[in-house]
Design a protein around this nucleic acid. Sequence first.
DNA 1: TCCCCGATTAACT
DNA 2: GTTAATCGGGGAG
Length: 196
Amino acid sequence: VGPAVREAPRLLGRVLARRFAGDRIARARIVEVEAYEPDDPASHSFRGLTGRNAVMFGDPGHLYVYLIYGVHSCMNVVTGPEGTGSAVLLRAGEPLDGLDAMRVRRPRGRDRDLCRGPGRFAQAFGVDRSLDGVDLFDEEGEIWIEPGRPLAPARIAVSTRVGIRRGADRPWRFYERGSPFVSRGPAASPSAASRP
DNA sequence: TCCCCGATTAACT
DNA sequence: GTTAATCGGGGAG
């Protein structure tokens, strides 16, 4: 629990799990995230509490799902503290288990692309607005986060965020250096980069 | 109410 | 490299 900028890199290497019908479980390592803060003009919470973003202002550890371009759902982890409006966008994952269940939702493309990009990640995991607000630490639920292995700092790259205008200079995108499961995006900033 | 446009993707040329 | 698809939030009138 804390500001999204601090929690975001700590989510890398953890595992997102999803239960489908028949107790089939899909899992993916989180390899790319972005932080969004309340004083951040790119964040949905920037203009305060609304119907859409209410979950962002609620309990940390819950899932905030929104629809983008009228087409794609995007998954975020609320990082709290409650009432602040901080969240981390899950941008990409490395599929581990249940790839066949993911392929049901995404029949096209290669396995490395199943969870590559926020819209694809959500689609592969069968997540839409109906899961907005669920508790991500309830392993009896439909979707949750498992501990996984935290990423060593040297393996974390930092860059500006993808696809935004306002707040575009903030280096709040974090991803696993060298991973083929990371979406294409801005190059890592020199200051934050360490040698491969 | 109307209107514009976005934390994107896939299918084009 | 360009663009259609497709929805709802939220600012303007």
